[in-house]
Computed example of a mutant assay.
Amino acid sequence: MTYQNILSQTSNGITQITINRPSKLNALNRDTIQELHDALEVANESKDTKVIIITGSGEKAFVAGADISEFADFDVKKGGKLAAKGQELLFDYIENLSTPVIAAVNGFALGGGLELAMACHFRVASINAKMGLPEVSLGVIPGYGGTQRLPQLVGKGRAMEMIMTAGMIDANKALEYGLVNHVTGEGELIALAEKIAGKIMRNSSVAIKGAIKSINANYKDGVDGFKTEIKQFGKCFGTEDFKEGTSAFLEKRKADFPGQ
């Protein structure tokens, strides 16, 4: 598949998707959101992909925000549709993807860029990363899940302060807050993400899929996360991965999971 705004390549079980609009600091527009969805769908359905890494091109930005020129003249109805469509097509889609998604945050991750990173299953950042949700400085609020995911990750008080001040935090502060899992040098970011991806790929992809569903269930209204966990736990017992994992453990050898 050919893309205009992103790059996608797969090697050794990892698909790296790069937002490639460096002249716009990789800002998200409608076409980029659609292309990201398409690339993620292809990767998720591919047997060659075990882990997905999302990053931005260049050294300045992961994603510096949404493309404001696209919606500056929107009215109430169009604004609501913009948020609903974006969340369905990309942000909620990533969060519920069965393939693990790591955000490799290089440089600025602001507005929709931070919302994209937060939708991923977890985040690693380069030391030069700057993160924030500055939407209130434009007279609007985060519309791609930022008001929901940021408090889940850093706590209500910190999220309130970050959103209301429209300020940025650096990589080390993000690490302290729990917004990112690891911080590394600028030239070592992808290598770190790939190292973590390698550890993930040693394990059962079927079990990981069930774990993602169970963890996400805890954050959904009207869903009992414990019941979801019980259901997913039980389903594991009917998989080939469970048979291989337990056999390998008892036979004192490394498991070779079939992913079934």
Score class of each variant (00 low, 15 high):
residue 28 L to D: 14
residue 28 L to S: 15
residue 29 N to K: 14
residue 29 N to T: 06
residue 29 N to L: 04
residue 30 R to Y: 05
residue 32 T to N: 06
residue 35 E to M: 04
residue 35 E to L: 08
residue 36 L to M: 12
residue 36 L to Y: 11
residue 36 L to D: 08
residue 37 H to T: 11
residue 37 H to G: 13
residue 39 A to L: 14
residue 39 A to Q: 13
residue 39 A to N: 08
residue 39 A to M: 13
residue 40 L to Q: 05
residue 41 E to M: 07
residue 42 V to K: 15
residue 42 V to M: 12
residue 42 V to S: 12
residue 43 A to W: 05
residue 45 E to L: 11
residue 46 S to R: 10
residue 47 K to W: 04
residue 47 K to A: 14
residue 47 K to Q: 03
residue 48 D to C: 12
residue 48 D to I: 14
residue 50 K to I: 01
residue 50 K to H: 07
residue 50 K to M: 04
residue 51 V to F: 08
residue 51 V to M: 02
residue 54 I to N: 02
residue 54 I to F: 08
residue 54 I to V: 07
residue 56 G to E: 02
residue 56 G to C: 07
residue 57 S to M: 01
residue 61 A to D: 08
residue 62 F to R: 07
residue 63 V to C: 15
residue 64 A to W: 00
residue 65 G to L: 02
residue 66 A to Q: 06
residue 66 A to D: 10
residue 66 A to I: 04
residue 67 D to Y: 01
residue 67 D to T: 05
residue 69 S to C: 05
residue 70 E to S: 09
residue 71 F to M: 15
residue 73 D to T: 13
residue 74 F to Q: 03
residue 74 F to L: 01
residue 75 D to S: 12
residue 75 D to I: 08
residue 77 K to F: 04
residue 78 K to Y: 09
residue 79 G to S: 13
residue 79 G to Q: 04
residue 80 G to Q: 01
residue 81 K to R: 04
residue 83 A to M: 14
residue 84 A to Q: 14
residue 84 A to C: 05
residue 84 A to F: 09
residue 85 K to F: 01
residue 85 K to E: 12
residue 86 G to F: 03
residue 86 G to N: 04
residue 86 G to Y: 06
residue 88 E to Q: 10
